[in-house]
Design a binder for these strands. Structure first.
Length: 786
DNA sequence: GCACGCCCAATACCC
DNA sequence: ACGGGTATTGGGCGTGCG
């Protein structure tokens, strides 16, 4: 029989010396299914050194049985664009493959083992062109599903075929959040129980499991039972990969509970990219997504909801100490309520992101749960592997290699001051376009000692050259990516923006853009399979040449350049001249430069990468300045924003100064909220590895002492409290501050508010020293009069 | 003894 | 665990001054 299914998850099992691929999906009849594909043959490639090439095959045939090789084939492949003959070794199981490749890797006849580093489920998808989050048709026969939590189980008769069906099945989604109890500090799963779990589903369930007698056995059991009853396709949480699941798993172990919530009836396990994998379902962590969004600074669920513009979500009070709340009935009620708000909010956020996640998965070819957890570099890796395979290329290995830096984009010093009517022009996808034009790719790179001729592109400034033909991997990949986006944009014009097709295509376009823009950085990343310093360096050099050319053309046209950064120029908004500049640029460079934005007014300081502009819609863009930085106190950001607003709209210096003065006065007099003073900094390594003393590190140490478990990537929120000595001695984690009176307001005035205000005001001739004098004087006046 | 300049580590941002 | 370019802060240290 034939069935159509949408691929949700894929993994493998080893059974009787054979690797069997398991495809977990949903059919067009809305059934949850698993398909076992026993037709997959694990394989890897051997490249033989030239001198052994004629004799090695025979030798290997003799050892075939011993090495558990099922079959040996000669194949014509390509490796970095060069035609090459490779031996394909085929096995029954992946285990056999690994053992054999380990034995052969160091043989003198062997130049290289390839593709033995690709995981079977992944290799299967590549070979069979099976794509996650897409529909496939497959010939199957039904088998006993045993205890597997699906509607039906099948064995594949032949391999699945991708079909042109674009919709998404009716997925069952479960969101959840756990609350743990600890008497002091951060909960520790070896001793502190889970007291509360909330779960919501897109079928309108709102379930809560709790006990306040600190025996969490029942809570975990009930939750686990509920998961299996509802049988979700997707489980989603916030920080569930690093908190909820590890905690649940450890508590389950301590309570001797079998946390059998995967579709094949075992417990979740840590997988690739450090995420928690739940076989047959997709376990997703919204924190992974939040970390990819630069606008999201603190990486909290609330911030994510705000970013997604989720309206009227109930805000909950800051609960820093659960133990206090369990003491009273009201406290318990509040905990229960908050927990549900969390689970609901997670579900709401997820519903807005589902289509994007699905497209990211199908574009990159990584399973849904993996793609969300995977760093950008591995998403690109996966995409390139698929494309390279289609071209008959062998997949290079990730190699340990030394890091080499190279020269990047060009940044011009801005002309400080307030400018009016300024246009911002930038190249559309500069690096991808230049790399396509000059066929910049690892497989087209010409070696240094080869002479320059008409068949190669020389790259300015750097010594590299690239063959004009045939198109290299990056050129092919970029052409495909740009072509597909173009096609999508055309399709979008034909669709109603309210339709699901529109939403899906829009999100696909976004996913493609992300991959396109990541490729240049990927090429310069030592961890990349297709790493090439020469490629990245050449792209950067071409970029510098292109933008320099634009600047030249601007001066030819008599357009004053105010500022430029990498692929953009800020110039006077003179439409006729700009049009000319665009034409000349396209002619000379071959890449289009577009008017991205027009500012009615724009303020530049002396510094690069910092400015604030008044848009035509009368909104204010702030770039790089303190007001958009996560590591400045709210009070400083508020003041800077307001002063920018006054100077951009009214250009009233006196008003700005008066505002500053009154704000400082208010700061000294009134009670502000603790959160307005918090300074946030990220730990970039474990606390004990820091060799220096710094405020956020000292604050982190205090938290650790109180039982917090802090790791790399955690955000430390601290405030500066009154006292003497070094700043780091006055840094206190905000969680440990009980009295707002302890805040050292004077520090904030002189080290936060004034510097932030001064950044703007000094452009208008007000020195920081004057502001400091002003604040000091007003302090004296207030002191003497009050 | 300390103000000052200088260098460095650390961090966050821009494109 | 995608790149380089850049600004900025606070710690630490040496220097020169009084």
């Amino acid at each position: 029989m034939k069935i159509n299914f949408w691929l949700l998850d894929i993994d493998r099992e080893e059974s009787e010396g054979k690797t069997i691929i398991r495809l977990w999906g949903i059919t067009d009849k809305n059934e949850r299914i698993v398909i076992y594909d026993k037709t997959f043959q694990p394989s890897f490639y051997l490249l033989i050194k030239n001198e052994w090439i004629s004799t090695f095959l025979k030798k290997l045939e003799e050892e075939k049985e011993n090495l558990k090789i099922k079959e040996i084939l000669k194949e014509d492949k390509k490796f970095f664009g060069r035609k090459i003959e490779a031996l394909k070794l085929i096995f029954n199981s992946f285990e056999d493959l690994i053992k054999c490749s380990e034995k052969l890797t160091n043989r003198i006849e062997v130049a290289e083992c390839l593709e033995n580093d690709l995981r079977p489920a992944f290799k299967y998808m590549i070979e069979k062109n099976v794509i996650p989050c897409c529909w496939h048709e497959v010939e199957v026969k039904e088998i006993d599903k045993k205890t597997v939590m699906v509607d039906k189980a099948y064995e594949a008769v032949s391999s699945p075929n991708l079909i042109e069906k674009k919709d998404i099945p009716n997925l069952k989604i479960l969101s959840f959040s756990i609350t743990c109890y600890s008497k002091v500090g951060f909960p520790n799963p070896t001793k502190d129980p889970i007291i509360l779990i909330s779960a919501c589903t897109n079928f309108n369930d709102k379930k809560q499991f709790f006990v306040f007698n600190f025996n969490d056995k029942e809570v975990i059991n009930d939750f686990s039972r509920f998961i299996n009853e509802f049988n979700p396709d997707i489980i989603v949480g916030f920080n569930n990969n690093n908190f909820d699941w590890p905690y649940l798993i450890e508590r389950a172990e301590i309570n001797k509970i079998d946390l059998a919530i995967t579709r094949n009836g075992v417990k979740p396990h840590k997988s690739l990219y450090g995420h928690v994998s739940i076989a047959g379902r997709a376990n997703l962590d919204l924190l992974d997504f939040a970390k990819d969004i630069p606008e999201i600074k603190l990486e909290t669920l609330e911030e994510l909801a705000e970013f997604l513009k989720i309206e009227e979500f109930e805000s909950k009070p800051l609960i820093s100490n659960v133990s206090k709340y369990v003491e009273t009935e009201d406290g318990k009620k509040l905990l229960i309520k908050n927990s549900l708000i969390n689970a609901e909010l997670i579900l709401k956020c997820f519903k807005m992101l589902l289509e994007f996640f699905i497209q990211l998965s199908s574009v990159t070819g990584l399973p849904l749960d993996q793609v969300i957890a995977a760093p950008v570099g591995f998403r690109v890796d996966s995409y390139l592997i698929r494309q390279a395979y289609k071209l008959g290329e062998l997949i290079p290995k990730r190699k340990e290699q030394p890091y080499q830096s190279y020269k990047g984009g060009m940044v011009l010093s801005p002309k400080p001051g307030l400018h009016k009517n300024i246009a911002v022009l930038d190249f559309a996808s500069m690096y991808p376009n230049l790399m396509m034009l000059y066929n910049v790719s690892p497989d087209t790179l010409v070696s240094l000692n080869e002479p320059l001729n008409e068949n190669v592109f020389p790259i300015p400034e750097v010594e590299h050259k690239f063959r004009k033909e045939p198109p290299g991997l990056y050129k092919i990949v970029f052409s495909n990516l740009l072509a597909e986006r173009k096609k999508i944009n055309a399709q979008l014009n034909q669709l109603s923006p309210e339709s699901i097709e529109y939403k899906l295509l829009k999100e696909r376009s976004k996913a493609i853009k992300i991959i396109t823009n990541a490729c240049y950085g990927y090429a310069g990343w030592v961890g990349a399979r297709w790493y090439s310093k020469e490629v990245a360096e050449s792209a950067a050099a071409l970029g510098r040449k292109a933008i320099k050319e634009v600047i030249n053309i601007a001066s030819e046209e008599g357009l004053k350049v105010i500022y430029s950064d990498t692929d953009s120029v800020f110039i006077e908004n003179l439409p006729e001249k700009i049009k000319k500049l665009q034409e000349k640029t396209l002619n000379k460079i071959g890449v289009e430069i577009k008017v991205d934005k027009i500012y009615k007014k724009i303020i530049f300081t002396e510094a690069k990468k910092k400015y604030a502009g008044l848009t035509q819609e009368n909104t204010i863009d702030i770039v790089g300045m303190e007001a958009v930085r996560g590591d400045w106190a709210n009070i400083a950001k508020i003041v800077q924003r307001k002063i920018l607003e006054i100077m951009l709209i009214e250009e009233d210096l006196k008003k700005a100064l008066d505002y500053l003065k009154s704000f400082i006065k208010k700061l000294r007099k009134e009670k502000f909220d603790l959160k307005d003073f918090i300074l946030w900094k990220t730990l970039t390594k474990p606390v004990n590895e820091y060799e220096i003393k710094a405020p956020h590190i000292e604050a982190a140490k205090k938290l650790i002492q109180k039982g917090w478990r802090l790791t790399t990537g955690d955000k430390i929120g601290y405030v500066i409290i009154k006292g003497s000595g070094k700043l780091y001695e006055k840094a206190e984690p905000y969680e440990l501050v009980n009295n707002i009176e302890d805040i050292d307001v004077e520090y904030y005035i002189f080290h936060q508010v004034i510097p932030a205000a001064s950044r703007v005001l000094k452009v208008f001739g007000l020195s920081e020293k004057r502001l400091i004098d002003l604040a000091s004087a007003s302090s004296l006046i207030d002191f003497s009069s009050g």
